[in-house]
Amino acid sequence: MSTSPQESVRRQNLGALLRYVHVRGATSRAELTVRLGLNRSTIGALTADLATAGLIDEGVPQETGRAGRPSIVVRPRSSRVYGYAISLELERLRAARIGLGGKVLDTRATERPPGAEPAPAVAALAALVADMRRSAPADGVDVGCGVAVSAAVRHHLGWSDAALEPALAAALDAPPPFIGGTADLAALAEHTRGAATGADNVIYLHGDAGISAGIIAGGRRITGYGGHGGEVGHMVVNPSGRLCGCGSRGCWETEIGERALLHLAGRPVPTPGAAMATAVQHAREGDPGAQAAVAHAADWLGFGVANLVNIFNPTVVVFGGTLRELYLAAPAQIHRRIESMALPACRDHVALHTPDLGDDAPLVGAAELAFESLLADPLSR
């Protein structure tokens, strides 16, 4: 049965309104009227439809101190409408239930089972989600699941999205999940509701066992073929440098990655994945080897960022994962390197930040993938 033009416009308006409230949070009807370019009666009819569907709540705002009748406020029903998000990392597995509006409602985490086969990790993730489902509201609306897969998992373990998707669908007893890269989804989250809100050109750099990037240009994610772009850790910056695990020499991650820091600092780290934080802490405590290692890595971090700034001309660069610690340890040194290498037309407006959403950024971004079908057509369920 075909949809009439009037009904098609109505559904588009419903989606636009719900998306606005999902991203901006509690919003007055008056603001929605202005931002969406619709009249008050239309806004009232749309919010009534969304409220009836259980997607939003409407109510009188708290005392504003202004004269006159206050505008009704529209809020996403975060506790009732939610998606599940999974973060598949080299050392650990994480899962969250995230409500409409980006609110993290529940989280679980466990170590990744050892071995190169994905089945034990998939089973562990399914157990985390099942545990959260038991505490979810009986009348809740589950919009689906999004998965953030670390580049280190793809490269070191060889787990493909094509294999993970059906395995997770079967284990979760749910439709196939939406899968993306950790850095890519963290960039989406920080762009939507974090450190890069309002910026249309963003680079999110994520450090773990390697270095990857999420790139947003003109307000759109650049994901590459098959969703596997942003492998900036294998950008060659020092052709005479150390041999990389990929077989090349002088890749960026051989200068700023955790293995590089361990090599330069000359000391082991007690916990896997903690090399950066440990080296930075030792440097702060005055250890000469750690100080030299951090200074070396910070200089090369600025070197690589300067190249990316020249190529993509972003307004915001966000340092996530282990790179957060490195940036915070030597921001002035990184800024100086960028100032000395990046073109003035590219560097003058760029702002460097750490993630507002912290470690939750990949999970929040994964949930955004799950919410997309609901936001595109809120009454299709």
Rank of each mutant, 00 (worst) to 15 (best):
A283D: 02
A367M: 07
A167S: 14
P362K: 03
P70C: 11
H335W: 07
A183L: 05
Q333A: 14
G226L: 02
E31V: 11
E190S: 15
A209R: 11
L301R: 04
R24F: 15
A16F: 00
L262R: 10
P272V: 08
T3Q: 07
L188W: 03
Q6L: 15
V122G: 02
S240A: 15
S78N: 12
F303W: 09
V316Q: 08
L172H: 01
R24Q: 14
W252D: 10
V122Q: 04
L369W: 07
V316G: 00
R220L: 09
N307Y: 08
A376M: 06
L168Y: 06
E339N: 07
G54P: 12
A130G: 12
T33I: 11
G102V: 05
S71V: 13
V21W: 09
R249D: 04
G115F: 09
D106H: 12
L46E: 11
A116L: 13
S160D: 06
I216D: 04
S4V: 10
G181W: 06
P113G: 12
H22F: 08
E7Y: 03
E31C: 07
L93H: 03
V147N: 07
R284L: 09
V23G: 01
G15R: 04
E117S: 11
P61M: 14
Q12W: 10
N238D: 15
A186H: 03
Q62V: 09
D106T: 06
A171H: 05
N13Y: 00
L352Q: 00
G54F: 13
A152P: 02
A16P: 00
S28K: 06
R108P: 15
H263Q: 12
A279W: 01
S4E: 11
